[in-house]
């Protein structure tokens, strides 16, 4: 902090602390998912037939999950639009985009949940061997991240409703957007690996 002509001038760092913190958090998240994907690769490449013979009859819902993937990708776009809206000081648009993004996130989780219920009814459980185990751990871990992103998003939406953001002050929107985009960008990789490979 410097003093020039009796006015305090705070030098803003080129990269804010909040952004740096979220980058480090995402680095840790990336390592977590790398470990899980690494475990999946051991089983997937290590098995000549996939799913293993004990799970031959169980089909993962590829088409529905494909549509769900599209919904999540759209939510990434709507989140980005919200971020752009607050940069233009348009709080009303930010609220609308956040609401749409949250609804899409909840829809994604709802469809994912109904798929899981169906799969459990078909006999694919966490205890039903390595296929079920790695499927629920990997996809479930992502679902937990989407859920936490949705909770975070609704907190940010509440703050937007309370008029806490402007074009100069939107750190919470910024960090929430980065996290959301990470969660969205991760999903197609998991979808291709788990559902299509």
């Amino acid at each position: 902090m410097e003093t020039q002509n009796n006015i305090d001038v705070r030098e803003r760092p080129p990269l804010s602390n909040a952004r740096l913190a979220i980058l480090v958090l995402l680095g840790a998240e990336t390592m977590l998912f790398s470990g899980l994907i690494g475990a999946f690769l051991v089983f997937r490449v290590g098995n000549v037939t996939w799913p293993p013979p004990s799970h031959i009859g169980i089909e993962l819902p590829r088409v529905v999950t494909g549509i769900n993937t599209a919904l999540l990708l759209i939510s990434g776009y709507t989140m980005f639009q919200g971020w752009r809206a607050i940069q233009k000081d348009n709080v009303q648009q930010l609220r609308n985009w956040l609401l749409i993004t949250g609804a899409l996130g909840l829809l994604f989780l709802g469809i994912q949940g109904s798929e899981w219920v169906q799969l459990i009814r078909n006999g694919l459980t966490l205890q039903s061997g390595v296929y079920g185990g790695i499927f629920y751990v990997l996809i479930g871990c992502h679902a937990v991240h989407v859920m936490s992103a949705v909770i975070w998003l609704f907190i940010v939406l509440g703050m937007a409703m309370a008029g806490r953001f402007s074009a100069e002050r939107y750190t919470s929107v910024d960090t929430c957007t980065i996290y959301w985009i990470f969660v969205v960008a991760l999903w197609p990789i998991l979808y291709v690996l788990v559902y299509l490979s």
Binding site: L15, L23, V42, G46
Partner: peptide, 29 residues
């Protein structure tokens, strides 16, 4: 055998990730 290949793929993938993370963070800064 496939298990050996599986471990190889997995190790190579996980070995690459710290470098990717470090590059992305330092690149952004």
């Amino acid at each position: 055998d496939p298990i050996g290949k599986g471990f190889n793929f997995s190790i190579l993938f996980m070995m690459a990730m710290p470098f990717v993370v470090f590059t992305v963070i330092s690149g952004t800064v």
